[in-house]
Design a protein around this nucleic acid. Structure first.
Lengths: 198, 198
DNA sequence: TTAAAATCTCGAACTCGTTCGAGATTTATT
DNA sequence: AATAAATCTCGAACGAGTTCGAGATTTTAA
């Protein structure tokens, strides 16, 4: 009977993850201690470290779950026949709204995702999914001749993603204070990008 | 004889700041404890808290000093008769080089500056100085008709600053691995922004 | 079946950021 | 000059993340 240990390990792992999701949502990252998580998961505090190297790692796996949920919402972006600018604004405003919904959670997550301590393969997979969607948008826009063929899809995606990042920075540094304000700023920047500044 | 206390307070403040600069440079933020700083400054660990509310605050004041130095270098950007694209690349590559010179320091600083815990007036002053320079560039470019008058200087600055941020994110998430690579990517994005993508 | 190896668990302890509280020093008041 | 008020300092202690080490459990090998 091999695999008892493996089975238990999986269960414990999931128990920790579930406890973290629950407590981070109820209280928040800062207000949840490792001991809280351990207690909720029914194990000793030290045992947690057999599964996650640091408290931050638990947070990152929590982010992964949250992002998965958010991704569902995103996929339903109605990519019908809208002009590319509107489409992009819709797309990024969903992300923006999600990430700034909870100021603290968003900040913490962005710090980890945008300026991570070490290259994180899992995050790259996430990014790739978003970029796939974006590239789909641009590809369609190129085919209907709304935008030029001369730019690579990846570079286009990076461009708009960067503008999105800049807006988030503006939010967290206090330049933007409401969603409509953010959307207006986003529209201005996106139009600049599309039309050029020459 | 009034002011003995004030005098001492100033000295202590400077001693802490100097100790922090020294130790953060030698070891790094994480590897420097408050106690280390206190010892170096010749005071008790608790006393530090009379001057800075948190360890992070010490780091932020350290950043301010570093950024001041970096700013000097920046001002000397030769804004002669270069095309705006080259000028912007030069400008932002100085910033990029500075901030990524020490991977860990840069990451920590960017986290604080881009996604700060609370709105930080001092950081805004810094940003303003950079934006002033950028707006100067754009203004000159508009006057020699290199770029259109229709965009506000501020929005233009935000646009390129955002692209710069996106590149830093690319650096820290492992998409960019060398300065020449970063510069090439920057040039591509900047050209996209200038020429538009239509 | 059994002994050795590998792995898992958790109480105790360590580190470091931060707060408390009480005594020391300076300033203000008369 | 003397005393009260304000401020500064730092040893002690607390809280939370993390590591140590030793015993318990499971796997492997014979």
């Amino acid at each position: 009977m091999s695999g008892v240990r493996e089975q238990k390990k999986l269960e414990t792992q999931q128990a920790i993850q579930a406890a973290a999701v629950k407590l981070f949502s109820e209280k928040s990252f800062e207000n949840t201690s490792i001991e809280d998580i351990a207690k909720e998961a029914g194990i000793g505090k030290t045992t947690v470290y057999g599964y996650f190297a640091t408290k931050n790692d638990i947070f990152i796996s929590y982010c992964d779950e949250e992002l998965d949920h958010a991704f569902m919402q995103l996929q339903s972006t109605d990519s019908a026949e809208k002009p590319i600018c509107d489409l992009l604004v819709d797309f990024f405003m969903i992300k923006f709204t999600f990430v700034t919904k909870n100021q603290e959670f968003g900040r913490q997550m962005l710090r980890e995702m945008v300026f991570p301590c070490e290259v994180n393969e899992k995050a790259k997979v996430h990014d790739q999914r978003y970029f796939d969607i974006l590239e789909g948008f641009f590809n369609a826009a190129q085919e209907r001749n709304e935008i030029s063929q001369e730019h690579e899809l990846f570079n286009l995606s990076v461009h708009f993603f960067s503008l999105y990042l800049g807006l988030l920075a503006g939010w967290y540094t206090g330049y933007l204070n409401s969603l409509p304000e953010a959307e207006e700023a986003m529209r201005i920047l996106f139009r600049q990008a599309i039309g050029g500044i020459q």
